[in-house]
């Protein structure tokens, strides 16, 4: 049982696990692992709460129907699996500000919240623009050898490296 209570697994063990999980989802569900579509469906479901059926008239929600599907349940499961892992290892802890951010940018939770909100907005917007995220393109698309997914994954990291370097090396003026 030690492996379940360990705080960390080797990245190779975890990576093999995710690869095997993708075999199972292709075999049993005819689905690649992917997370960002569930956010678009949820946005549609929330808009429907306020605007009713009119929300579904948006052309985007005709393509990405605001309903609960396999991928939406996958994202719910991620929360449960991560809570389980964190509780078993004793790593669960409520925190407003990640320790690394706190030591380099300060412990103020409002600043971190605003930056996280802006970052999240770009991710939600960009993932829908590119048609996938680090799981749908980055793992599932690349393993199928799809050209669009290889290009997207390279650009995810190029944009991510640029933004992280800008924040930590230019704005905060520290780092390597």
């Amino acid at each position: 049982m030690d492996i379940f209570t360990a705080a960390r697994w080797s990245p190779y063990a975890a990576g093999i696990g995710i690869g095997v999980l993708s075999w199972l989802t292709f075999l049993l569900s005819d689905k690649p692992l992917g997370c960002s579509t569930a956010f678009a469906r949820s946005a549609g479901l929330i808009e429907r709460l306020f605007r009713g059926r009119k929300a579904e008239e948006r052309p985007y929600y005709q393509e990405v129907k605001p309903h609960i599907d396999w991928g939406w349940m996958l994202v719910c499961g991620i929360l449960v699996g991560a809570v389980g892992s964190a509780l078993l290892s004793g790593e669960f802890q409520w925190a407003w500000v990640p320790a690394m951010w706190a030591s380099e940018a300060g412990t103020g939770s409002l600043a971190r919240w605003l930056v996280a909100l802006v970052g999240g907005f770009f991710i939600g917007f960009g993932a829908r623009w590119a048609g996938g995220c680090t799981s749908g393109h980055g793992i599932s698309g690349t393993l199928q050898l799809t050209v669009s997914s290889w290009i997207a994954t390279i650009c995810f990291f190029l944009g991510g490296i640029a933004a992280a370097m800008f924040i930590y090396h230019v704005i905060l003026g520290r780092g390597a």
């Binding site: 951010w101 991710i123 680090t134």
Partner: peptide
């Protein structure tokens, strides 16, 4: 679609420090 969308995503990725799957997993440890 692919290049511009992924670069917008990347900027968010480096700003937030999580992606759509790991952000939910991060909520899972609090």
């Amino acid at each position: 679609k692919t290049i511009i969308g992924a670069l917008i995503f990347g900027i968010g990725f480096g700003t937030l420090g999580y992606c759509p799957g790991t952000v939910v997993a991060a909520v899972g440890h609090g």
